[in-house]
């Protein structure tokens, strides 16, 4: 494994039963993601982008192949024993924001820090910093249903980043936003990547967003069709 790799996938196969049919979601996928990468997974719906992100995010298991996260082979570890990896190494940003509805913006950002056992003072500092960074310091006491879609996604980004993860996985992070808000969210992710060096892997099929990625991995029918740089992709 490359010293710089945060994720290494080797010969991954993954199938799903869909009724009586077995759908092959990924076939022979191998992939290396280095620290600090800002990667877009591109491809049409059903191409296998989300399945790939699920495997990287340790919330699903491959049928064959190996998944190494931060140098640790997690393939044979049961998913429920990977809670600490998800908590300490990974951050998630979802298409539908997935904030906890009964918690305020502040509490949503604070939640993963509580899971990590971060002390009160440090929690306050980190939550304040990240809410300021995503431009929502004055919305800290609002609950998700009192925020716009863009604001919710900013809270979700602050939640993903507050724990200082090595890798943030974002599945279609702009799909539920208008193009202008989506562009601003991508700008925000890009800025965070540039300033913190945190690795980002996001899936999208929006060409305008794909061109913002440093590296684009195109997936088609469960296979990696191409690795491209941002300029080639655009």
């Amino acid at each position: 494994m490359n010293k710089q790799s945060v994720v290494q996938l080797t010969a991954i196969d993954k199938s799903y039963p869909l009724g009586r049919v077995v759908v092959r979601a990924l076939s022979g996928v191998s992939l290396d993601i280095a620290h600090g990468d800002f990667i877009a997974l591109a491809g049409p719906s059903g191409s296998g982008k989300t399945t790939l992100l699920n495997l990287i995010g340790c919330i699903d298991k491959p049928d064959r192949g190996h998944v190494l996260i931060d140098g640790v082979d997690v393939t044979s570890v049961p998913l429920h024993r990977l809670a600490a990896t998800r908590r300490d190494v990974l951050g998630f940003v979802f298409q539908t924001f997935n904030l906890i509805p009964v918690l305020t913006a502040w509490e949503n950002v604070e939640y993963p820090l509580l899971l990590r056992g971060v002390g009160r003072r440090e929690r306050r500092e980190r939550v304040t910093r990240w809410l300021e960074l995503v431009g929502l310091a004055d919305q800290a006491k609002q609950r998700p249903d009192q925020l716009s879609g863009g604001q919710r996604q900013r809270v979700a980004i602050a939640r993903a980043m507050a724990g200082d993860p090595k890798l943030v996985i974002a599945d279609e992070p702009t799909a539920n936003l208008d193009s202008e808000t989506g562009a601003r969210i991508l700008d925000l992710l890009g800025d965070i990547n540039a300033t913190t060096g945190c690795t980002f892997v996001f899936s999208t099929h929006d060409a305008a967003l794909i061109e913002r990625a440093e590296r684009v991995i195109r997936i088609r029918d469960g296979r990696i069709a191409s690795h491209e740089t941002a300029t080639v992709a655009a």
Binding site: A83, G91, L115
Partner: peptide, 14 residues
């Protein structure tokens, strides 16, 4: 259900 999925995915134990 989705909230439970979110909690588990951000590292909440079973």
């Amino acid at each position: 259900t989705r909230e439970i999925g979110t909690l588990l995915s951000v590292g909440t134990t079973r």
